[in-house]
Design a binder for these strands. Structure first.
Lengths: 226, 226
DNA sequence: GGGGGTTGTTATATGACTGTTATGGTTGTG
DNA sequence: CACAACCATAACAGTCATATAACAACCCCC
């Protein structure tokens, strides 16, 4: 389980990291808001610990940005002296919050609780897809790929989005045609091949995912989990 | 400060309006959901008071529709008898909620609280757009562009303002037409193209932002963040 | 009424995207 | 190992969305 720790005070971020690593989590630390958003897309963590007070972009804004593309659980952090608005935090999509200073125990307990809660909820239909160096924002109709914003033509976007929304599942060409082109599409099924090719040549070979050919059936979006 | 009051019972809407006007707010009242969404786009209020039970489209749906295009604060209203789902309301992006019947005092207090919170937190208000060498003041209806005050025709201004208020989000021509022209506009969608062209030729190519064409969809305002 | 500026429409040009086809390569099968 | 079925690729052509330009209608303020 990967956790992204966002705090402008380096030693605090490191301290938190330490607690989490002790519990077997993998962590990454960043110290400002903009970086948090960027690193989030690259790192694709399973949980985000997010301080409110940050340079450049505050925690609420970071939270909202992340929520644009992901339903990843977020825990907000705030110093006791800062006024933390719970309603606002929840509105922006935070899952829980912790007031600093906190006991290591409490931190771990909340992290575990949120992850447990999240586990049960997110099995269905993500409107946005997030993987390391790859995320799809269905609302903005864009793909963030290795830090760059990729603008794909409509059909390619739909196809990639559909496949990526159902990782591991193979689809027949007919299925893909009716899903992305519509039922009334009467053309050749080779059309799908061509679009897959076009997608493939825009993507690197060394990603953790790829569009695989399922011989005799069609295609699937596969994520390697090493 | 403009407040949009949405309630299907006319006399209740009027009553609420009365309280608010007494406090110096400008108000507009509508009595059903669909109208609320349309009027919202035209009226561009600073806050929305939104009843849950509405004909045609309930308050949750209206809330979601508004959240598609704006971060304006929204306060939900519900009769005590109705089951108001707080979580659902917050998920849809509401900022607060009030149970009817309520004291005028309470209403005003919450309105003020939400507006205050909103003011302090959102560094970029959707009513004013600020970027390097480019800022829009929606109150004064002016654009400051590379140090000069640019006088744009009304329609061009509204279009630019609407797009710039939602950076990164693509809009269909129909959506732009109803947002900037009003829902009664019956003309051709090509109208939008022409206005975009006119805006583009008034702007430099080397700005940090631009109006981008989203093929198959419409247009978006994009800010480059290198 | 006349003139400048604004707005909406239309026709044409341009170009992006899409689908088809042909060819050659790959995979599985007997 | 040969064959058939299937798939990858490239190139082409068609289609559709958008850009552009030119015109017509409108408004409003003198």
């Amino acid at each position: 389980m990967k956790i992204l720790v966002v705090d402008d005070e380096k030693h605090i971020a490191e301290l938190i990291s330490l607690y989490l690593r002790k519990e077997g989590y993998e962590t990454k630390e960043v110290n400002n808001g903009r970086e948090a958003v960027d690193v989030f897309a690259q790192y694709a963590p399973h949980l985000v610990l997010l301080d409110i007070m940050l340079p450049e972009m505050d925690g609420y804004q970071v939270c909202r940005e992340i929520r644009r593309v992901s339903t990843v659980p977020i825990i907000m952090l705030s110093a006791k002296s800062e006024t933390f608005d719970k309603v606002l935090g929840l509105e922006m999509g935070a899952d829980d919050y912790i007031v600093k200073p906190f006991e290591p125990k409490e931190l771990i307990a909340r992290v575990k609780a949120v992850l447990r809660r999240y586990e049960t909820v997110t099995t269905i239909s993500p409107r946005a897809v997030v993987l390391p160096n790859f995320s799809i924002d269905a609302e903005k109709l864009t793909v963030i790929y290795h830090g760059k914003q990729l603008e794909l033509p409509p059909k390619e976007f739909e196809l990639l989005h559909y496949l990526a929304s159902h990782p591991g599942l193979p689809f027949t060409r007919d299925r893909l045609l009716s899903a992305c082109w519509g039922y009334e599409f009467a053309g050749d099924t080779r059309t799908v091949d061509v679009h897959v090719k076009r997608l493939r040549e825009k993507m690197r070979k060394d990603d953790v995912w790829q569009i695989k050919t399922v011989w005799g059936t069609g295609y699937k979006f596969e994520v390697n989990t090493p």
